[in-house]
Design a protein around this nucleic acid. Structure first.
Length: 414
RNA sequence: GCGGGUGUAGCUCAGUUGGUUAGAGCGCCAGAUUGUGGCUCUGGAGGUCGCCGGUUCGAGACCGGUCACUCGCCCCA
């Protein structure tokens, strides 16, 4: 159709779509600030090693989904596929270890080279929180509660479900991983092709395979919770007790695993059935080993990210911005005075629209279409009298208002 | 990367077994109404029928390829 198209998997945001995104970000910020989080913004690209080392070379995100390119200086750079690694890098390069604990929130575009689908874009947007330097389960509870509050504030409480699991600490996780390899290796000839690959790359992934044959085998697989050591068990119990105390509902989902290698202990997803194949609307977990892995000091971390596009498809239409006051000059002599009135009202905090061109009828029509509440009309008569005619665009009632009393007369429309 | 579906006006869609100038509704612009909008009436702009090639006397309709969108797999927000 059009000769110029946006790059595959990207889209322009305009009108209601733009308002949906802005509303989600604004809601997120207000909730995060209430929890004591502060803003962070990191670059949308980093040296490639930042992602390659932290996400693990075997993860799909790195092995087939990154936008990686060489810049003019010969450096390999990668567009961020998620926010955590960049924040961890900022933590190390900024020497922020002295400021712990840190509670950070941010948002922005992420990039993943995938086949686009409903709720999945190549450039998409996330909101994100990270708590650094709190190894206690209190942080898990706080971050989970923040996520639940955020979704509730968007009106989605009834439409999402919290799925919760623990991956255990490093020791538990590797013991379980080995148990899975031992078990599944016995079924190598019966597993699906995908799952055979998962066996050496990420055996836990087999647990949530959708293949019917795999599911039968998975039914008899070792249980994660049987391989948890004392520490991991206790940690998870405390997280659950905290959620219970706050009245946050969840279901334990032992098949919930994370694609990224650096997760440990708590992992969760808020999921919905309303979005087709992309059910996860918010996902998070604990990553105590990440910063050390990147060469920084051992620092606990936990956080989540939520997909703005996915949330945008679920929320109700966000409220419209404040209705404007339209300024309508009648005749050439009124053009400049009208401009001055618009300027004066804007500086006084009113939302003001101008019609730009056309006769009075056209300008009123445009004002009404733009959602304006009142129109201030001024022509030769009003100029001579030092007034404007104030027309209510809903009721069509008109009244003359003295120019020097404008602000008080319009106070209700601010 | 793999499989299915769909591409006709800004939007939603008609378009007969292939037949000559490709239509409607909505939206947009203008006029009826040169100091008054949402209704009505009249007129107008807007289309290389996604693109390339093939079959045919003739293709928006059929065939092949390609691109885009879309749904699913993989994976994830």
């Amino acid at each position: 159709m059009a000769a110029l198209q946006p790059v595959r998997g990207t889209h322009d945001l305009l009108g209601e779509d733009a308002r949906r995104h802005a509303h989600i970000v604004a809601t997120f910020k207000s909730v995060a600030y209430r929890y004591g989080f502060q803003d962070i913004s990191t670059p949308i690209f980093e040296f490639s090693e930042v992602f390659h080392r932290t996400l693990g070379e075997t993860s799909d995100v790195v092995s087939k989904e990154t936008y990686t390119f060489t810049d003019r200086g010969g450096e390999s750079l990668t567009l961020r596929p998620e926010m955590t690694a960049g924040i961890a890098r900022a933590f190390i390069s900024g020497g922020l270890a002295k400021d712990l604990p840190l509670k950070l929130c941010g948002h922005g575009p992420m990039f993943r080279y995938e086949r686009p689908q409903k709720g999945r874009m190549r450039q998409f947007h996330q909101v994100d929180v990270e708590v650094l330097g709190v190894p206690e389960p209190q942080a898990d509870i706080e971050v989970l509660a923040l996520g639940a509050d955020f979704l509730a504030e968007l009106g989605l409480a009834e439409r999402v479900e919290l799925h919760l699991n623990t991956l255990g600490d490093a020791e538990s996780r590797s013991a379980y991983r080995q148990a899975l390899i031992d078990y599944f290796s016995g079924f190598k000839d019966r597993l699906s092709e995908d799952s055979v690959k998962r066996l050496d790359r990420n055996p836990m992934r087999i647990l949530d395979s959708k293949d019917a044959g795999d599911r039968e085998i998975v039914a008899g697989a070792p249980r994660m919770h049987d391989y948890m050591n004392e520490i991991s068990r206790d940690f998870f119990a405390r997280v659950r007790a905290g959620l219970d105390a706050l009245g946050i509902a969840y279901t334990i989902d032992e098949r919930l695993v994370r694609g990224l290698d650096y997760y440990s202990h708590t992992a969760w997803e808020f999921v919905t059935t309303d979005l087709g194949a992309q059910g996860t609307v918010l996902g998070g977990g604990r990553y105590d080993g990440l910063i050390a892995l990147m060469g920084g000091p051992q620092t606990a971390g936990i956080g989540f990210a939520a997909g703005i596009e996915r949330l945008a498809m679920m929320i109700d239409t966000p409220p419209l911005p404040a209705r404007a006051i339209a300024v309508v000059p009648i005749g050439p002599a009124a053009e400049v005075p009208a401009l001055a009135i618009a300027h004066r009202l804007r500086k006084a905090g009113f939302t003001v629209e101008q019609g730009y061109r056309g006769n009075v009828g056209k300008r009123l029509e445009r004002a009404a279409k733009a959602g304006a509440r009142v129109a201030l009309m001024l022509g030769d008569d009003e100029l001579a009298a030092g007034t404007v005619k104030c027309r209510d665009l809903d009721t069509r009632e008109e009244s003359a208002v003295a120019l020097d009393a404008l602000e008080t007369a319009l106070a209700a429309y601010r």
